[in-house]
């Protein structure tokens, strides 16, 4: 006879729910698969949208900071390639976090229909941005080569940074997805927050541009690590060890409470949603 499952109002739930998620990993895989399948259906450009989005950001940021404000990257190669190196890790983060934030309310029909680990929803929402980023990475290589940017051999491991950005996106997005069920206002705030956050991150300008009195903004911003590390790996600059370690530590410090909050809140979501 199968093992007994006991459900009470305070059922013992595994601490972070990771083991249960591993058991149901097929659900995670199929949610990502469905996301990617559905995403660009019936659009004229199709999957090309995955590249168009970051490219537009690159063009805008390059125009504002370089062409208008005459900011120099201080590195070899074109300013556009420099900006692309920041936009790529940033976009994975922002897209993962905002898509994950809407994952529970966007899939309410699944919540009311099947039992599966709820954590799969916000986590799977980070799959498509990560796939987009891998396509973007190839475009980055082409753009860099075309504009005379020399790439270092370490560029081969740069995608790991994109993976870290996606983890950051999920760490933020998992808690948000449950919070949004009760406080819908968050969804209105998120685009503004991410826009401000991007401008406070050296994505379209070099960190050296930031005057000392605002240095704390850079020091406290956990996305500086991935952005600077991606550029360093791609072009062979010195690794920003300090901000990378800070970002990794902060990732755990944000991710674990995010999972704990989600575990507590997600069970009751369906009654409120």
């Amino acid at each position: 006879m199968a093992q007994v499952k006991i459900i009470t109002p305070r059922s013992h739930r595994p601490l972070l729910g990771i083991a249960e998620l591993v058991r149901h990993r097929r659900v995670l895989y199929f949610l990502v698969w469905r996301d990617i399948k559905v995403r660009y259906k019936q659009t004229a450009l199709g999957a090309a949208w995955a590249v168009v989005h970051p490219l537009i950001n690159v063009v805008v940021l390059t125009f504002v900071f370089h062409s208008l404000a005459n900011v120099q990257s201080g590195a070899q190669g074109s300013y556009a390639a420099f900006t692309f190196g920041g936009v790529l890790p940033w976009t994975v983060f922002a897209a993962s976090a905002s898509r994950a934030a809407g994952a529970l309310i966007g899939n309410a029909h699944l919540l009311g229909r099947y039992y599966f680990p709820r954590l799969a929803l916000p986590l799977a929402a980070c799959g498509a941005p990560l796939v987009d980023a891998m396509v973007g990475f190839v475009v980055y290589l082409i753009l860099a080569a075309a504009t005379g940017q020399t790439l270092a051999g370490t560029v081969a491991v740069a995608p790991l940074v994109l993976f870290m950005s996606a983890l950051w996106g999920s760490a933020v997005g998992i808690a948000l997805s449950a919070a949004v069920v009760w406080i819908r206002d968050i969804r209105q705030v998120l685009p503004l927050l991410f826009q401000a956050w991007m401008l406070a991150t050296p994505v379209g300008y070099p960190a050296s541009l930031v005057p000392d009195k605002y240095a704390f903004v850079i020091a406290l911003n956990p996305m500086v690590g991935p952005v600077e590390t991606f550029r360093a790996l791609a072009t062979g600059g010195p690794l920003p060890a300090e901000s990378l370690v800070l970002s990794a530590v902060a990732l755990v410090a944000v991710g674990v409470p995010s999972l704990l909050f989600f575990r507590a809140a997600s069970q009751r979501c369906i009654d409120v949603i």
Binding site: M1, A2, Q3, V4, K5, I6, I7, T8, P9, S11, H109, L111, G112, R113, Y114, Y115, Q267, R268, I270, D271
Partner: peptide, 23 residues
């Protein structure tokens, strides 16, 4: 019983896997 929503009080024991035809 489909574990879609948790109980407010009481206790449920499930042995084995359900297939649910809800919604």
């Amino acid at each position: 019983l489909a574990e879609i929503t948790p109980p407010t009080e009481g206790r449920i024991e499930l042995r084995g896997r359900p297939s649910s035809l809800l919604d």
